[in-house]
Computed example of a mutant assay.
Amino acid sequence: MSTPTPLDADAVLWSADPGDRDGRPLLVLLHGYGADERDLFGLVPYLPSELAVAAVRAPLAPPFPAPGYSWYPIEGLETRDPAHITAAARGLIAWTDAAAAAHRTIGLLGFSQGSAVALQAMRLEPARFAFAVNLSGYVTPGDLPRDSELAELRPPVFWGRGTNDDVIPDFLVAHTTEWLPGHVELSGRVYPGLSHSVSEQELADVRVFLDKQLAQDDGGPGSA
């Protein structure tokens, strides 16, 4: 079993000061491979103002000369080790234990690697996270002990991806397509011509999804 690497509590960007965010729903942003906490923080103006937003930094440095940080090692497109992804998800959960106790609900939004970690964390702790947004990411193959619990709770998940995304292997897209509908309340969209990136239309769809989650927020799954 891989050991989780702790997240750096000082490498987190918050959308509000502590006194302005306590008690508000929390959305945690998880960037992709080779980026850092600043990457997705630029999405804050597109997100509902009711949310407190935290952009966290992944704990690992990719091999030189790749820039930024990573959630888990990638030796090649076909060699993503599930144990590493699970360890990264446990590190995220540990961070929420320390940092998110003041928030009544927690949602996750990840891009690429960050999405894989977000979905894995939801599988490890199904009642902790109210919803997830999966942008150009995937579900890690293999069974986890609480997958059946997740299938009973069926938290909302938005999945967006582009038709021209050549980064995520086809077998992972196929696995995610098959796995998600049986375990979550799935919504989302495939964007024609979009590569491994995020578009204005996708951000608009994410905003609709998040507004819906806020409207339905009643202190259910993900409550602190």
Rank of each mutant, 00 (worst) to 15 (best):
S2H: 13
P4D: 05
T5P: 00
P6S: 05
D8A: 14
V12F: 04
G19A: 15
D20M: 12
V28K: 05
V28P: 06
H31I: 14
R38H: 14
L40R: 08
F41G: 05
F41N: 04
V44D: 05
L47H: 06
L47G: 08
A58K: 04
L60A: 06
P63C: 04
P63T: 11
P65T: 13
P67R: 09
Y69P: 03
Y72G: 08
P73E: 15
I74R: 07
I74E: 10
A83D: 15
H84K: 03
I85D: 01
A87R: 02
A89V: 13
R90D: 08
D97H: 10
A98F: 00
A98C: 10
A101T: 14
A102F: 02
F111W: 07
F111I: 10
S115E: 05
S115D: 04
A116M: 14
A118L: 00
A118W: 02
A121H: 08
M122Q: 13
R123Y: 09
A127H: 14
R128P: 01
A130D: 00
N134A: 13
N134T: 09
G137F: 01
V139D: 01
V139E: 02
T140P: 00
P141I: 05
P141E: 09
P155Y: 03
V157P: 01
W159N: 12
T163P: 00
N164E: 15
F171W: 13
L172W: 04
L172M: 11
H175T: 01
H175D: 06
W179N: 01
L180H: 00
L180G: 00
G182L: 08
E185D: 15
G188S: 06
P192R: 08
L194F: 00
H196G: 10
S197W: 05
E202H: 06
D205V: 13
D205M: 09
F209W: 05
L210Y: 13
A215R: 12
A224V: 13
